[in-house]
Simulated scan of single mutants.
Amino acid sequence: MAAPGSGGFDWSIWAAWAQMLVALLALAFTISESRRSRRERRIERLAADSQRREERDEADRDRRLRARPNLFGTWMLDEDEDNAEFIVKNEGLGPATIVSYEATFGGATYKALDAVNLETICRDLDIVCQSKGHYPALASGTSIAPGETARLLSMHIVKRTDKSPPLAAIPGMFDFHISYVSIYGDLIEDVTGKNS
């Protein structure tokens, strides 16, 4: 449209519309870029959080492994003195807290190897035993520190019969089952005795 009396075309209206269109396109582009940038930052933040979480989990696993107890049972046999002892040593780096302990001999299970139980076992072996005073009850909650030992069975044979087994055969007649936890609450179950 031309201005009245000018006789020509008015480009100012088209220029105003063109400027408005360019401004709207610039606004749309700015909004789009802003959303894309926010989305990328969120993805980067989630990736960084995930990485930190993985590193924290790895450090936690490492701490758990370093503080893991490891109870190792062994028989100590002294043929000269006719002594048999079963000793458990914590060879791990963390304390072992006992949950339960059982000894199995001749099909019978004992929660503790006290004087009465030891006398029954010795009678079944056709031997007379004298205690060395070690009848530990590894009660629930008892802790064995790293490097520490616990004597589970100790007997001194004072009399044998011709039916008595040799001292070396006694370890094969017992099984010891010990359940314990690490300081992180990881349950560890160990059956040892016959093959120790």
Rank of each mutant, 00 (worst) to 15 (best):
I121Q: 02
F72S: 12
L93T: 05
G133P: 05
T142H: 04
P146N: 03
Y110W: 05
W75C: 06
E33G: 09
C122N: 02
R151S: 08
E58C: 06
A137K: 06
V128H: 01
C129R: 02
L71M: 11
T104H: 02
V116Q: 08
V88W: 02
D162K: 15
R39H: 08
E54V: 15
S154F: 12
E102R: 13
D124V: 05
A103T: 15
D80R: 12
N83D: 09
E119T: 14
E85R: 15
P136Y: 09
I121E: 01
K111Y: 01
V128D: 03
A96Y: 05
T104G: 00
A139F: 04
E40C: 05
S154E: 08
A145F: 05
E55L: 13
N83G: 00
V88F: 07
S154R: 07
T120Y: 02
L65Y: 06
F105A: 01
L77K: 01
L125D: 02
S100M: 05
R66N: 09
R45W: 04
Y135A: 12
Y101F: 15
L152Y: 01
W75H: 05
G92N: 06
S34T: 15
Q51N: 10
E81H: 03
I157C: 04
F105K: 02
G73P: 08
K159L: 07
P166K: 05
S37V: 09
I31M: 09
E79Y: 04
